[in-house]
């Protein structure tokens, strides 16, 4: 078995998983590179979790093969794959203390006790839980349990670490802190991380590449910037961040082509009607229908010529709430750079 960086850590070859009539995963091809922080992003029921479970071995593909560093593992039980999982509910063993939980994999492999203890200490150090070894999981906070789950998986030096909605149960502040920390830990251990999330912000913050899932298929794979700035489909444009989709007559009026394009709300400028437009810009006129003051920025809903609404977001650099709220009903010119639009498929 080769372990060179050219062999993908995980490769899906036409993988499908059917539950009766339901195609949870439908002919998916996918490559995750060695050492990558890879996100599977999608709404619930999109097949991302089923894919993760098939990599772990909790589920088997109906068709197709899954390769772990070149080895076909499609039909291997979980205990014969060097892949470990951080579960959504952490799945810590309630009848064991933190140290025994972390040492579980080594205990199963009959690693001598002295070495087990040494490695548990290293892991507790890595996840910043020194001195917690004798506590029971029930005595820990959500964030601490998360760290124990991570340590319990990493101590086995898996080839690939799987994380199922790892931060879903944490509150916002802790989640943001753990995002940074997870990323740092991944850099330190150098293991391929694959994590499942429905939170696009989390996917963009942490991952090197993202696969966007919808209806059991992958809509797009790319870096966060590619996904955000060049969404390949209307679904991706809508699911990752907020996006304005313009098609048909209105699209033709703006770009000269009927092809659907997406434009991010923050890329659109609000201008006076007499604003001059350079050739590198696109524009459309409209009336401000609604204004939502959000402190840091303001969201405008602008009805443009042709009858559709565009969302525009502007930072409140010079304006106050009084100013922005008075803008309701004003005629405005919306303009943006040509290269900020992205043509999308259906």
């Amino acid at each position: 078995m080769t372990n060179s960086s050219s062999t993908p850590a995980i490769r899906f070859n036409q993988v499908s998983r059917y539950f009766g009539e339901v195609k949870a995963v439908d002919q998916v091809d996918l490559e995750v590179h060695d050492g990558e922080f890879f996100a599977m992003l999608g709404p619930s029921g999109s097949g991302k979790t089923t894919c993760l479970r098939m990599i772990a071995g909790f589920d088997r593909p109906t068709n197709g093969e899954i390769y772990l560093y070149g080895q076909d593992v499609s039909n291997l039980p979980p205990y014969e794959r060097s892949v470990n999982t951080v579960f959504q509910d952490y799945a810590l063993f309630p009848h064991m203390n933190v140290g025994d939980n972390i040492a579980y994999g080594l205990m199963i492999k009959k690693v001598p006790k002295a070495e087990r203890e040494k490695r548990v200490d290293e892991m507790l150090d890595l996840v910043q839980l020194k001195g917690f070894a004798s506590r029971k999981p029930s005595q820990l906070s959500g964030g601490q349990r998360q760290r124990v789950a991570l340590a319990r998986a990493l101590i086995n030096h898996p080839k690939v670490l799987l994380l199922d909605e790892p931060l879903g149960a944490l509150d916002l502040k802790l989640r943001q802190q753990m995002q940074v920390e997870l990323k740092a830990i991944q850099k330190r251990v150098g293991i391929t991380f694959i994590f499942v999330t429905h939170d696009q912000e989390e996917a963009i913050t942490m991952s090197d590449r993202i696969a966007v899932f919808n209806h059991g298929k992958i809509e797009q794979v790319g870096s966060p910037a590619e996904i955000y700035e060049r969404p390949a489909s209307t679904f991706v444009a809508g699911f990752v961040g907020t996006s304005n989709l313009v098609s048909g007559e209105v699209a033709k009026r703006i770009t000269g082509s009927e092809q659907t394009f997406s434009i991010r709300p923050e890329k659109i400028h609000l201008g006076q009607m007499e604003q001059t437009i350079t050739t590198s810009m696109l524009f459309v006129n409209g009336i401000i229908r609604d204004v939502v003051y959000l402190g840091l920025y303001t969201r405008y809903l602008v009805e443009v010529d042709g009858g559709i609404d565009l969302v525009v977001v502007e930072q409140n650099l010079k304006t106050t709430s009084m100013d922005v709220l008075a803008a309701r009903g004003q005629k405005v010119k919306l303009y943006w750079q040509k290269d900020h639009i992205s043509y999308v498929g259906a």
Binding site: A56, P77, P78, T85, A91, F93, G105, A153
Partner: peptide, 21 residues
């Protein structure tokens, strides 16, 4: 929880070991 059984097998335990531990 089923996830505990899965976690055990994920960490390398065969079915009998999972049963025992």
């Amino acid at each position: 929880p089923n996830s505990l059984v899965e976690a055990s097998s994920d960490l390398g335990a065969r079915p009998l070991q999972t049963f025992r531990t």
